[in-house]
């Protein structure tokens, strides 16, 4: 699915050039769940933005399903974002004036899907996250966990290939965090999504197939259990012990 080759993303800070991602090469398989950990400022979010076509690398290439994202025109990149990627943000990023259903519908608007079909898919998405009875509620009328569920429904409603989640449980209490992670895992399993999840929380990262750590713009893989057979969420409690970091592959 993804083939990143020597990707570097530099930023100018005054006269100084800062490399948020440095010479990073990585392969992500179709249907894989990759969790990326790391301290603040070490390039996790930048990597997610590059993977999601929200940003372009300063050098290197990002091959996604045979297309180099770094070489696409802005309109083509927008199209890829629209059709292939679903995003979940730490702060939910819901439009405050729109209801839960309308927020989910916003993801379908650029796809040119007609009204009745849009409404059907919105209903199904909200039902899959357990919010069928909260469709008309605006974000301020929902709890943090419910808002994140709406954001997840918004991410999956367009049936993307990849779900990109940036600290999806960062603003939630422990109980709600577990609910959300369970939900994400369930969707990953059911829909065959490729899921890339940024998190500070090791207990969340442990649930992924592969866990990497970003440090100074480089990604090191801590654990890789991709060969293990996919199991139901309740069966995925046994976690392989963390070993020595190895370079991303």
């Amino acid at each position: 699915m993804y083939e990143l080759t020597q990707v570097t993303r530099n930023y100018q800070k005054g006269r100084r050039t800062v490399s948020a991602v440095r010479d990073l090469s990585l392969t992500v398989d179709d249907g894989e769940w990759l969790a990326v950990q790391g301290r603040t400022g070490h390039g996790k979010s930048t990597l997610l933005h590059l993977l999601g076509g929200l940003d372009r690398p300063s050098s290197g290439s990002i091959d996604f399903d045979g297309r180099d994202l770094s070489g696409l025109k802005e309109t083509q990149l927008t199209r890829v974002r629209c059709e292939s990627f679903g995003y979940v943000f730490q702060t939910f990023n819901l439009v405050p004036t729109l209801s839960a259903a309308e927020n989910v519908e916003a993801a379908l608007v650029p796809m040119g899907i007609r009204g009745p079909e849009r409404r059907r898919r919105v209903g199904a998405a909200l039902e899959s996250v357990g919010l069928a009875d909260r469709m008309r509620h605006v974000p301020t009328e929902l709890s943090g966990g419910q808002q994140q569920r709406v954001a997840i429904a918004r991410a999956i409603v367009k049936e993307p290939k990849v779900l990109l989640a940036d600290e999806p449980t960062g603003n939630l209490d422990e109980e709600t965090r577990d609910d959300i992670v369970n939900l994400l895992e369930k969707l990953w399993l059911e829909r065959g999504l490729t899921m890339i999840l940024i998190t500070h929380d090791s207990s969340v990262a442990k649930r992924a197939q592969r866990v990497g750590v970003m440090k100074n713009g480089n990604l090191s893989i801590l654990r890789d259990s991709r060969r293990a057979e996919r199991r139901r969420p309740e069966q995925r409690k046994a976690v392989a012990p963390e070993g020595e970091p190895e370079p991303a592959s």
């Binding site: 929200l54 629209c82 995003y87």
Partner: peptide, 16 residues
């Protein structure tokens, strides 16, 4: 800005 950034992430073109 946050709202528009999110919409762009969802695939909204600048024009829209």
């Amino acid at each position: 800005v946050r709202e528009f950034g999110t919409l762009k992430a969802l695939g909204w073109r600048s024009r829209r």
